[in-house]
Design a protein around this nucleic acid. Structure first.
Length: 465
RNA sequence: GGCGCGAUGGCCAAGUGGUAAGGCAAAGGUCUGCAACACCUCUAUCGCCGGUUCAAAUCCGGCUCGUGCCUCCA
């Protein structure tokens, strides 16, 4: 399997540190509010990566944190007059719910920053002992220039950074040895949560969390480190500096970054008013549609989000789900005959094509195209006098290929209430009596309630939209 | 200013040297009481200019437009 590595800027064959195992760390959200649609992209993309690696036989240790101590959380807590942990706990629970609805599976571990403070203090101490960090008035800074490789991920050189920040320096803190130095530990301010440390009461810097949590739950060297492309600099660059300086070894073998999501072709921002939470979207569409939509483009391409595009994705997904239903219907009528070798082979070829797409840096757009090819194959070959084993093969394969992408192939089982049941029967009677006006009126009435009817040879089918 | 990315049919989107996957939408047709579903048919020479090559959407150079990051935003 080939993966694009941000570090080398090319696709590389994925070779795990330990055969058959993969340690993946994905930077998670800061929990100060409901997660937004932009947060959803890395969650969906890298969950899919995980599924595919597991399908390929890897035992995946998937770690994704919740940043639960941060300025924005504290601000929110002060506004509501509650403890910061009330805010973070609330939004961790909400994030988990949204993730569940998007079929994003639980990570192997979801560490929280506040539960890893001792390890962070330990790492800061190590960095001070090695000369990579220094303390001034209760703040500990990382001595950026001391780390030779700084800038290797984002391909920046320190002097460019420095000139670009000349203006900031005027208003900046003069206590730093160098303007590029970043905070590892900051002293508490009034009303902020804090922890005891050798440098006084305070809290950890943002970058430090991920370095510690990945070390603790995966190891000094991790196979794949992933996140949104905006994290490349400075977050991931700083993580590398901290971890490699402290551990004396390479931090991550492969760096994967997803591109941004735009809304109506503009950058998502609160000021533009085009800021959507996953929860809001979920009220308009099943979140599985959003997952399908996001995987319909390559993860390294910017993806535009708009109602029209989601609507199109929804219709495409419907086609897949309908095909599964048809195949299931066919299976009921199928015969115990020998399947056609040629047809079986075609299905196998599609699976190979799908794997080739996924092996090529997780090309989910191509993988979905293969699923549609399988849908067409199914719709055109499944019918009367088809063998049971062929039907099963089609169904198993559809389920498998969709499953890897986190797409559930069965519509949610919704029970019809008696009223609706009665209306459907009444319509059938009207049709028998050739009272089509009445029949159509009932169909429209049900449609207004979100129930779509389809008259098939096997009887009336319905689905919720 | 520094470091990147992108430009493919009405819309979305694959495709890194051999004459353009797939989806959505639209149109025509088969099926159907009608509709829906499904199936069939139909829609592109790949931003512009030049170069390399037997051959380029795919490689090189230039241009135009758009866009991301440059200290806490996924």
């Amino acid at each position: 399997m080939k993966l694009y590595n941000t570090m080398t800027r090319q696709k590389e064959e994925f070779v795990p540190i330990r055969e058959g195992k993969a340690g993946i760390y994905v930077c998670g959200p800061t929990v100060y509010d409901l997660i937004h649609i932009g947060n959803a992209r890395p969650m969906i993309v890298f969950d899919t990566l995980r599924c595919y690696l597991e399908y390929r036989g890897y035992e995946v240790n998937y770690v994704s944190n919740f940043t639960d101590v941060d300025d924005k959380i504290i601000k929110r807590a002060n506004e509501e007059g509650v403890d910061a942990s009330v805010i973070s706990e609330r939004y961790i629970a909400e994030a988990r719910k949204d993730m569940h609805d998007m079929n994003v599976r639980e990570a192997t571990v979801h560490p929280k920053a506040t539960e890893e403070i001792p390890d962070m203090i330990q790492m800061v101490q190590t960095l001070i002992d090695k000369g990579y960090a220094y303390e001034v008035n209760g703040t500990v800074y990382f001595r950026t220039r001391r780390f030779q490789d700084y800038g290797k991920l984002s391909h920046k050189n320190l002097d460019d950074l420095r000139s670009g920040n000349r203006e900031l320096k005027v208003s900046g803190q003069e206590e730093k040895e160098d303007n590029l130095d970043f905070v590892l530990w900051k002293p508490k301010k009034e009303g902020e949560p804090f922890w005891e440390s050798p440098w006084g009461e305070g809290r950890p810097g943002w970058h430090l969390e991920c370095s510690c949590m990945s070390k603790k739950y995966i190891g000094d060297v991790i196979d794949i480190h992933a996140g949104g492309e905006d994290l490349i600099f400075p977050h991931h660059e700083n993580e590398i500096a901290q971890s490699e300086a402290a551990n004396g070894t390479e931090f991550a073998r492969y760096w994967m970054h997803n591109a941004f999501l735009k809304i109506d072709n503009e950058k998502m921002s609160k000021s533009l008013g085009n800021f959507f939470t996953v929860r809001e979207i979920g009220e308009k569409y099943p979140l599985q549609v959003i997952r399908f939509f996001m995987l319909s483009a390559h993860y390294r391409s910017p993806l535009n989000f708009s109602d029209d595009l989601v609507e199109a994705a929804k219709n495409g997904l419907e086609r897949i789900l309908t095909a599964v239903e048809r195949a299931e219907e066919a299976l009921k009528q199928a015969e115990d005959s020998q399947p056609d070798d040629g047809q079986i082979r075609k299905v196998d070829e599609l699976v190979e094509k799908y794997e080739a797409a996924m092996d090529d840096d997780l090309n989910t757009a191509d993988a979905i195209a293969v699923i549609f090819e399988l849908v067409r194959l199914s719709n055109t070959t499944i019918g009367e006098h088809v063998s049971k084993s062929y039907c099963e093969k089609i169904l198993d394969t559809l389920e498998l290929l969709c499953g890897i992408l986190g797409i559930e192939t069965h519509r949610e089982e919704a029970l019809l209430d008696e009223e609706i049941e009665r209306l459907i029967e009444e319509r059938q009677q009207a049709r028998k009596d050739k009272d089509f006006a009445r029949a159509d009126a009932i169909r429209n009435e049900l449609q207004d309630k979100g129930i779509v009817l389809e008259d098939t040879r096997e009887g009336v089918k319905w689905k919720k939209i």
